[in-house]
């Protein structure tokens, strides 16, 4: 088996890796690069726990091949906080206790940040539909929605 050499940018860092043709971007992140923030909940694009951004666009990394990342800008949960400074979405999730087990949280963080970059003033319904691709089994979404709305407000007033 000969691997495919990929040159890409992840969270602003130039990264090179070799992967097999059948490996997903999620496999590459988790198994080759040790970036385990994105989680595999389903591998069918239904749960959103593996959410990343590709050139700013929200994507399930389990539905993308590792070989496809070449030349693109990949964003993962590991790149959301700037050093020790949390993104408002992260801070508000903590403030609102908008997590229980926390396994969906990385995907929610990535997805919510992508929403607010696209739509800084979403309605509750818009937040709910945007996050409909991110399953959370613990919280019933209530506190998550409140946290994202609150983060949106803070970002607008910043």
């Amino acid at each position: 088996m000969s691997g495919i050499h990929v040159s890409t940018t992840i969270n602003g860092d130039q990264i090179d890796y070799v992967c097999e043709p059948e490996e997903t971007m999620l496999d590459v992140l988790r198994d080759r690069l040790g970036m385990t923030g994105a989680k595999e909940g389903c591998s069918t694009g239904d749960c959103g726990a593996c959410s990343i951004t590709v050139d700013g666009r929200l994507t399930c990394s389990c539905l993308m091949l590792g070989a496809e990342a070449g030349g693109h800008e990949i964003g993962t949960v590991e790149g959301v906080a700037q050093g020790n400074e949390l993104h408002p979405v992260q801070q508000k999730i903590l403030d609102h206790a908008a997590l229980q087990c926390g396994v969906c949280t990385p995907g929610i963080v990535v997805a919510a940040k992508a929403l607010l970059e696209k739509n800084p003033d979403p309605t509750e319904t818009e937040v709910r539909y945007w996050l409909a691709g991110n399953l959370c089994r613990c919280t019933g979404y209530d506190k998550i929605i409140r946290a994202v709305m609150d983060a949106a407000q803070e970002l607008r007033s910043a």
Partner: peptide, 21 residues
């Protein structure tokens, strides 16, 4: 009271280690 949970920071930043991590 409602203080922040001790494992929260790791969970919002993707550092928390779950079963498959």
């Amino acid at each position: 009271t409602r203080p922040a949970r001790p494992d929260g920071m790791d969970k919002v930043t993707g550092k928390a280690r779950f079963g498959a991590d």
